[in-house]
Computed example of a mutant assay.
Amino acid sequence: MIKKIILSLLFLVPVTGIWAQRPDAAGYARLRKDQDTLQLLSREIFAGKGDAGREAATEQFIPALVRALKTPWSFRFPFDSLRTVSIQYPQDSSFRVFTWALERETGFYRHYGAIQMNTPDGQLKLFPLFDISDYITNTDTIAGNKAWYGCLYYNIVQRHYFNQEYYTLFGWDANNPRSQKKLVEMLTFKNGTPVFGGPFFSYAEDSVPKPSRNRLIIEYKKESTATLNYNKELDMIVFDHLISETNEPAKKYTYVSDMDYEGFKWKGGKWVHVNKIFHDAIPLGKGAPVPQPLDQKKKSMTNPRSAEDFQTEPSKKQPTKKKQ
């Protein structure tokens, strides 16, 4: 049960930009106090009693977070006590994105989020994210922050092409009692405002080319696990190829990995599909990661990982956060 999970959140990217101003002593003290309030509310969102209690905590959390972020130079405050809120930074630290989830008693989820920009004067520039994923049938969209496909982001990969920055977002959606989802999409900024999605996932080099996608979403069995992340060694996005274990392809909740892997390689400002990553001739000890049944007790609402991550992590050790 997700409510019994031990949560951990790893801030992967330190702030290294030219805007290194920190809050003054009074501002820092205020942010510490605000963080204590937000920590209590975030726990209620995650593990409060009933839908009403969790929703009430959410309604209090959002304005409390905004008030805290209005403190000058709040971008430099890590909010690292908010264990049930994922906070991700791109390599250039030009923004950070907060995301969190509210689980309903039905086992369905609603997501919340906001993008805070790293402003040169330390003042707040915030884009709230409005989850519309429950109300759309076409997920292959290009949309702004008011039509966001809600999820918990767990990684950001930045690429530069023709004087523009491209931020690839990796997200997880616990979805419903029968299935979960992972997604990858592009975030760009047009006239200073965020745009989610775009025709950046190309299948032009496949043996049978298909139209580009604005985002990739994989859905699979709740008790299973699937990889969808950037692999530094391969310098590409890697994800599991999924099949229905009951030979019912229309039922996504029956999908599991068939131990084959696909990917995307960055070429000419797009992620270009690679149909098969690992081939027969794999050096000894360098094989593809083998999916294993997911230990639900290790599952994290803010740091979703695949089975190979659990296999390689040191036992009984908590990840260490990199300080801002």
Rank of each mutant, 00 (worst) to 15 (best):
Q311D: 11
G107K: 02
P72R: 11
D140L: 09
K70T: 15
H241L: 05
T106E: 04
H241P: 10
K286G: 06
F77E: 06
I115F: 06
K146V: 08
P293D: 07
L228S: 00
S86Y: 09
K251Y: 10
A174P: 11
E185N: 05
C151Y: 01
T302C: 06
R30Q: 14
I243K: 04
F75Q: 00
I115M: 05
R76D: 07
G171N: 10
G144M: 01
F200S: 07
D280K: 12
A52W: 02
N175Q: 11
K232H: 09
T99P: 00
S94L: 06
E205A: 10
Q158I: 03
K322Y: 10
K190H: 08
Q311N: 06
G192A: 00
I45D: 01
E313Q: 11
T312M: 11
Y161M: 06
D51N: 07
E59D: 11
T99S: 03
T168I: 15
Q311S: 08
W148G: 01
Y230I: 00
S300A: 08
K298H: 11
F201R: 13
P304W: 15
F201K: 01
Y255S: 13
T227N: 05
N191F: 09
I142H: 14
L124A: 13
G198V: 02
F200D: 05
Q60M: 15
Y89L: 13
P209R: 00
T139A: 14
S257C: 04
A307N: 05
D295V: 03
P209E: 04
D235Q: 14
S244V: 02
T71E: 11
K286N: 11
T302F: 03
V15P: 09
F75W: 00
V157R: 14
P293F: 10
I115R: 00
P78W: 00
K222G: 10
L40H: 07
D24A: 12
A25V: 14
M259R: 14
F189K: 02
L102M: 03
F189P: 08
P211E: 13
V157T: 04
E59P: 13
T168G: 05
K323V: 12
F46T: 13
E55I: 10
R96L: 15
M186N: 00
K298V: 08
F278S: 07
E165P: 04
L102S: 06
P14G: 03
P304Y: 09
Y230K: 07
F264N: 05
N191I: 04
I237V: 15
V85K: 00
N163R: 12
L234M: 03
K322E: 06
I218E: 04
V256K: 13
M186F: 07
Y220Q: 02
W266H: 05
G113N: 00
Y166G: 09
G48T: 11
E205Q: 15
